[in-house]
C-alpha cells in the first residue's frame, strides 16, 4: 500500500504516474465551486502548499461540541475546471481529490506546479468518512453552508485513490476516451444492422 503523507513535496508528486493506487494520510481540505471562487477572490484561510484538496460536500453533524463526518465522497470535479488551474498555481496543493476527471487547463497546471489529480470512488461517502479521524477546522460555514464550506479533515489511509491525471501530461480519461471511441465504431455498426 503506497501512502502519501501531507505535506507532499513537488518531487514526490512528480514521481506519481497515471494508474498508481495510493492512500492519503494527513490533512485533507474540502473545496467545491463556491470555495474555489472564494479562495481566488479572498485568499486562503489556511496554508495549502503541499496539501490535498478534496472536491467534496460532506454530511457532518455536531455531537457534544465535536464535528462528526458521516459521509464524505467526492463531487463531480469537472465543475471546478473553471478555477482549478489558478488555484493550483496560486496555492500549490500537490493532490486534488475528486471524481470524473478534469480538463486540459487543469492538466497543464498539474504539469507546471508538480501535482496530481486522483480519483476517489464516487458515491462511496461512508467509506471516505471512515478514514477521517477528526475535523480540525471549518471555514466559511456561515456564508457557504455545510456542502460548500471549507472543512479541514485529518485522515488516515484515505483511499483507494487512483492517479488519473499526472504531472507528465497524461490523463486516464483522455486515454480511455480514445479506446471507447474505437469500441463505438463497432457498436454503431451493430445498431445500424439491428431491427
Amino acid at each position: 500500500m503506497k501512502v502519501l503523507t501531507t505535506p507532499i513535496g513537488e518531487k514526490e508528486a512528480r514521481g506519481l504516474r497515471v494508474g498508481d493506487v495510493v492512500y492519503l494520510t494527513g490533512t485533507l481540505i474540502t473545496a467545491r465551486d463556491e470555495a474555489h471562487k472564494k479562495l481566488l477572490e479572498h485568499g486562503s484561510p489556511l496554508p495549502l502548499e503541499g496539501g490535498a484538496l478534496f472536491h467534496c460536500g460532506p454530511v457532518v453533524r455536531k455531537m457534544e461540541g465535536t464535528w462528526q463526518v458521516l459521509a464524505a465522497g467526492p463531487t463531480t470535479s469537472a465543475r471546478m475546471e473553471l478555477f482549478e488551474a489558478d488555484v493550483l498555481r496560486k496555492f500549490k496543493p500537490r493532490v486534488i481529490v475528486g471524481k470524473g476527471g478534469m480538463g486540459e487547463k487543469t492538466l497543464a497546471a498539474l504539469g507546471e506546479v508538480g501535482a496530481v489529480y486522483v480519483h476517489f470512488t464516487g458515491g462511496a461517502g461512508a467509506l471516505a468518512a471512515q478514514a477521517i479521524r477528526t475535523v480540525t477546522g471549518v471555514h466559511w460555514l456561515e456564508e457557504l453552508s455545510m456542502a460548500e464550506a471549507v472543512w479541514v479533515f485529518q485522515v488516515e489511509k484515505f483511499g483507494p485513490l487512483v492517479v488519473t491525471m499526472d504531472s507528465h501530461g497524461r490523463s486516464m480519461y483522455k486515454d480511455l476516451a480514445v479506446q471507447v471511441e474505437a469500441n463505438m465504431k463497432g457498436i454503431r455498426e451493430r445498431i445500424r444492422g439491428s431491427k
Binding site: V21, L70, A124, G125, A126, A128, Q130
Partner: peptide
C-alpha cells in the same frame, strides 16, 4: 482499476448499513 472501484463501492455499502450512515454524502 474497475474491480478496485466495485470493491470500494461494496465496502462503502457495508459500512453504511452497519453504522446507519448515508451510503453517499449526496
Amino acid at each position: 482499476p474497475a474491480k478496485v472501484q466495485i470493491e470500494a463501492i461494496l465496502e462503502d455499502v457495508n459500512i453504511a448499513r452497519t453504522h446507519k450512515v448515508p451510503i453517499c454524502q449526496d
